[in-house]
Each structure stands twice: as C-alpha cells, then as structure tokens.
Amino acid sequence: MTAASFVQAGLNGLILGLIYVAIAIGLTIIFGMLRLVNFAHGAFYAIGAYVGLVVAQQYGFGYALLAGPLVVALFAVFLDRAVLRFFYGKEPTAQILLTFGIAIIVEETLRLRFGGTTQQYSLPQWLNGSLAVAGLQYPAYRIFLALGIVAVVALVWLFISRTNYGLIVRAGVRDRTMVQLLGGNIHQASTLIFALGAALAGLVGVAASPIYSIDPQTGFNFLIPSFVVVVIGGLGSFWGAVAGGIIVGELSALTTLIYPGAAEVIIYVAMAIVLLVRPQGLLGESEIIRG
C-alpha cells in the first residue's frame, strides 16, 4: 500500500462524500423546516436521473443539468401541496409510510415508462478524459462534479443564511407558530424548501449518472447512506450534513483500500458509535441551520 494509493483513496472518498453531501443537505433541510422524514428523497434522485437521460439524449448534457432539477422541483411542489402538507408534524411512522409509498410508486412508474433495464449516460468527449491531480491521473468528470457540488452547496448556504427567505426558513426551524404570528408565510417557505431539497437530489441524479448507471431502483442505493450521513451529522443541521457526508465518503473509501470486506458495514458502525456517544449527531440539534 503506497502513499499514492492513500491519496487516491482520499480523493475517491472526497468525491463520494460530496455526492452524499448534496443529497443529504436536501434531506436535512427538509427535516429541519418541515419536520418531515422524507423516504421519497431517493425517488427525486431517480426522477432527476431519468429526466436528465431523456434531455441529454435530445439536447445534450448541459440542458440535462438544468432540466433534471427543474422537473423534480415542480414534482415536489405538486407533491407537497397535494399530499405531504397534511402530514407535517404528524408522527414519523405515518410520514415514513407515506414517503416510502411515494418512492415505490415513482420506481414502478419509471419501470413502466423506461423499462427495468440499466441505462447509461454518455458524456461529452471533453469530459471523458482524465486530469493530473496530486500526481495521479484522475477522471476529469469526477473533478468537475466535485467542484460543481462545492459551488452548489455554497449557493444553498448563502440562500439560507443571507436572504430574507432564508431568514423565514431559519426562524421556521426554531418556531413555526411564531413565524406565522409575525406574518411570515411559513407554508410558502416550507414548499420552497421542499422543492429546493428535492431539486438538489434531482441535480445529483443527473450529475452522478455518468459515473453510476441508472435503473428504476437507483434512488434507493443513495437513500440509505444519505440517512446515515444525516444521522451522523445531526438531523436538521446543514454543516452536519456536510461533515457527515465527507466522513462517510472517506470512511468507505479508506476501508475499501485497507480492508475491503468491511467497506459496506463501516458506515453503520460509525453511525452506531455516533448514536451511542452523541445521540444528537456531531453537529446536531442545538445549531440547526445556523452555521
């Protein structure tokens, strides 16, 4: 095991971690704002991936990156207004059953429309090569993906921490009733946050699909690790999701290098330890979306 292979593993872990971060941020802000445990989050990823696939084949990959999240956001608004708002603040079991049901409906709909077989994105040629990074030849696309996620995460953070809308969101996380009494439109903000979180998953669905092939079950592959990320980072915490994502990504990658047999289980071990030592998660509760 050379130093180069550790650098390689570190880089792999970082990129995998950033993918988890982008998905988990959506999960965590939705939980923070809507108090909704969203098991349909993986379905948003899958819808984004399939919409992106269709658009990429017709108009190119760039448009897919716009269309994927847009369609998912619209779907999320519809879902929120039509169904989910009746379940805000209800017991988590009802929410989990509902959102899990939605996820299954989405999966089966995708299967009906696109078939169950594996689909593959093809990248523009200029993104398909490799770049020299830290003395390694690394796939160019993964580097762009990582930089793109960092930029998107920064934008989401600016939105939440610097805009008036973000203020309502942050206040809503603290006390929904008070925001309403003060005249803030909490329903609109909730819908917006739900759409934003969903759009993030949809965006990753498009952006990660040139690496991971897609099929109707794709979303579930990312759903469970993303929940692990949120639990490790702390439910509802923005920076918790960021920290948790990187930790989970690096743990998986380094374990794959050192002892591949445990790579699958290590993230659950980490989650168990965090739950034992710090049940609220690393950056949990006390600083929900405050930073």
Partner: peptide, 17 residues
C-alpha cells in the same frame, strides 16, 4: 469486490498506478 459494487474508483485507481 462484492456483488453490487457501484463505485469501482478504488480498484481502478490501483489498476492505473
């Protein structure tokens, strides 16, 4: 690598070096 692996970057990185 176990059945159902989706990310092969670690093995491919080793192959590359």
């Amino acid at each position: 690598l176990k059945l159902g692996t989706t990310d092969f970057s670690q093995a491919l990185g080793q192959a590359q070096s």
